[in-house]
Structure formats: C-alpha cells, structure tokens
Amino acid sequence: MSETTSTPPRASTPQRSSAPPPKESPNSPKIDPIYYFFLFPALLAFTLAITVPAIVGFGYSFTNSIGFGDWEFTGIRNYIAVFRDEGIVGAYLFTLGFALVTVIITNAIAFFLALGLTARIRFQRTLRTVFVLPMVISGIIIAYVFKFLFSNTVPAIAQTLGIDALSQSILANENLAWIALVIVHAWSTIPPALLIYIAGLVTVPEEVYEAASIDGASPASKLWHITLPLVSGYVVINTILGFKGYLNAYDIVVGLTDGGPGVATRTVAMSIIRGFEGGDFGYQMANAAVFFVISIIIAIFQLRLTRGKASFGS
C-alpha cells in the first residue's frame, strides 16, 4: 500500500514512533533474523491454507470434478461455459453494480459521520461507541434482523401511514430488493470505514485550519481544499477495502434475500458456493478463477487511478 502514497503513514501512528523500523534506515547493516521468524508462521499458514489450495483448485477448473471421486480433463470447456452462462454473467453485473453503489454510499456517510465525531461535540465517546457497534455483530444475524424489519415492521408502518409504495416488503420486489442489500451492507460496514476516517481526520493538524480561518476560508472550502486532500489516502484505503468486501458479498445476501426474489440479487460468491454444494466443483473453480482475475484487474485499476495522489495527513 505504501508505494501508492506520497507520504508514509507516519502521522497516523505517533505513539509507536519511538522505535524506528530498521528496514527504512539506510545505515543499518544487518536485519535482525527475528523479523523473519515473526513472518514465517503467517507465511506458512497463508501458503498452506490459501496459495496451495488455490493452485490445486485452478488445476481442477480444467476437469469435470465434483470435488470427490474420479474426474476427467475437459480442457477449457468450463471456461467457455462460464462465459455462456446467463446466470453467471448476470451475477457479475449485479455484483459490480452493487459494490459500486455501496462503496460510494458507505464512504460518503462514514466520512461525514467521522467529521461529526472528530468535531468538538458533546458525548463524543458515547456516540463513537454507538456508531461502531454494528461492527461486532455477525453478518448473518444482521441479515435476519433486517429481514424481519423489511418484511414486517416497514410494511406495517407504511400501511399505518398510508404509503402504498412501501406497504409490501421490498425484499419481495425484484426491482427494489437490491436497495435493501445496499442499506444493510452500508449499515454494517460503515463502522470500519468510520474508524479509518476518524484515524485520518485526527492527523490533520489544527494549525492548517487556523491559517485557513485567518485567510477567511469558509467551512466548505476548508473541507474541500484542506481536509479532503490531506486524508485522500484514507479514502483510497476505504474504497479499495470496501469494494473488495462488497465484491465478495455473501453472508448478508444469503440471510436477507438468498439471491432473490428470483435471481435478482445473486452475487458471484453465492453462485460459486452454491455450485460447490451442488457438486459443480470444476465449473465453479473456473468461475472463481475468472472472478479472481477480475478482482485483480479492478484493484490494479484503483491503484493506478490514485497513484501519487493519495495523502495520509500532513
């Protein structure tokens, strides 16, 4: 991440600055082997649990394996079938659109909440805790609670108030169910984004604002010309992490809409996992490989777009 930024994230961690990292210091001749020792277990675990299975799985994407028993090589048939599969192409389009909308909404709300929560307000600590609470609840539980709200509470309120448009559950509406997904994902993922923004905003030194005030800058232009440029690095982090998370949306989708109504909200991760369960191992491995490549392309694109422009505080 650091190579994409113009300044190292020094300012965000002032407490730990007492021990300078030896890697960055040009005149430290030897690197203490203890660092490798620290890295090794994680590297080993990652290799065994992620890299090796991924490579093996990639191999299976050229077979008709059901994950068990005999299999035969089928060449690139699975890949051809993936691109011909209306359901899978639909899932890609839905997932990309959904991730895009959600990442924008989540970041906008989280950013303005962070502005509010770093300002000198009453009950700042209490409010911060309240806003971060959704983070500790597991996705599937959130999904079930919201499912109840959307299919019972919201229609009941709408009926009392005479709002016809909302008197039927939006989860049962093919054209609106995605909105429910965006709302619930935003609700549950605003906290981590919020925390990162708060961390970013506290690094902007007060003097800059004072200087701006002396020059007569309005609050809006302070936000636009000072705050945003100085925390742009955090925006990048949140967008990339958020986008990646929404691309993999699974648990909330399963709990809330189960890909429905119809196939209106079926995500890529869902088709992959459902396929595995249905014994379509080789085929969904091909799908997963395609998904992996697409995710990488998106990440590279995001990094390119922001290279050299991101800043982490002053």
Binding site: E174, D258, P261
Partner: peptide, 29 residues
C-alpha cells in the same frame, strides 16, 4: 442440481416473470 438456481427461477415466475424466459434459461443451464 443445486448449481442451477431453479428455486429462484421459479420464484421469479411466481413474482411475475414470463415462464418462457425462465424455462428457456433452465434449458440452457
């Protein structure tokens, strides 16, 4: 097979989608 989301196709039909569309999709799956 589970890999074909027929239950979802059926739900779409019940919610108003044209049966021909979803059945054609099932054929192609």
């Amino acid at each position: 097979p589970n890999t074909i989301p027929w239950a979802n196709y059926l739900q779409a039909i019940v919610f108003g989608e044209k049966p021909e569309t979803m059945l054609a999709r099932l054929d192609s799956d």
